Amino acid sequence: MRAIFAGLPWWVKWIAVPAIALIVFGGLIATVVGFVIGLLFKLLIFVALVGGLIYIVRKFMAGSSSRGDW
C-alpha cells in the first residue's frame, strides 16, 4: 500500500483519499453512527427506568413494612 502512495503529494494521502472515502462510505458511516447512538440512548432509558422501578419498589416496601401488618 505504501508503494502506491509513495510518489504522490501529501495532500493526496491526507485530504483527497479521506474525502473520497467519506463521499463513498458516508451513508454507511452515518447509518452505523446513528444506530450506535440510538442503541446507547435506548440503553440509557432502560437503565433509568429500571433504576426508577427499583427505587419505587424499595420505597414502597420500606413504607409498608413500617406501618405494620394489617
Rank of each mutant, 00 (worst) to 15 (best):
L43K: 01
A3W: 15
L43V: 10
A16H: 11
F25H: 12
W14R: 06
G51D: 13
G63I: 00
S66F: 09
G26Q: 01
V50M: 05
V57T: 04
G34W: 12
S66H: 08
W70G: 08
V33S: 03
L43D: 10
F35K: 08
S65W: 09
G52T: 10
V57E: 05
F35S: 11
S64C: 07
G34M: 03
M61W: 04
V57L: 14
L22D: 04
V47I: 13
L49H: 06
I4W: 15
P9R: 09
L49M: 11
G52Y: 14
F60I: 02
F46I: 03
R2G: 07
V24N: 03
V36T: 01
T31D: 15
I20D: 12
A19E: 07
S64I: 02
G26W: 01
G26M: 00
G7H: 08
I23F: 09
G68D: 03
A6R: 04
W14C: 03
I4C: 14
V24M: 15
A48W: 09
F35N: 02
F5R: 01
L22S: 04
Y55H: 15
I4E: 13
A16V: 14
L49R: 12
G51C: 02
L8I: 04
I54D: 01
V50L: 15
R67Q: 08
L43Q: 10
G68E: 05
K42Q: 12
K13W: 11
G34C: 01
I37T: 00
L8R: 03
F46R: 09
V47M: 09
F25C: 15
G63L: 00
I45P: 01
G34K: 01
A48S: 11
G7L: 04
I45C: 00
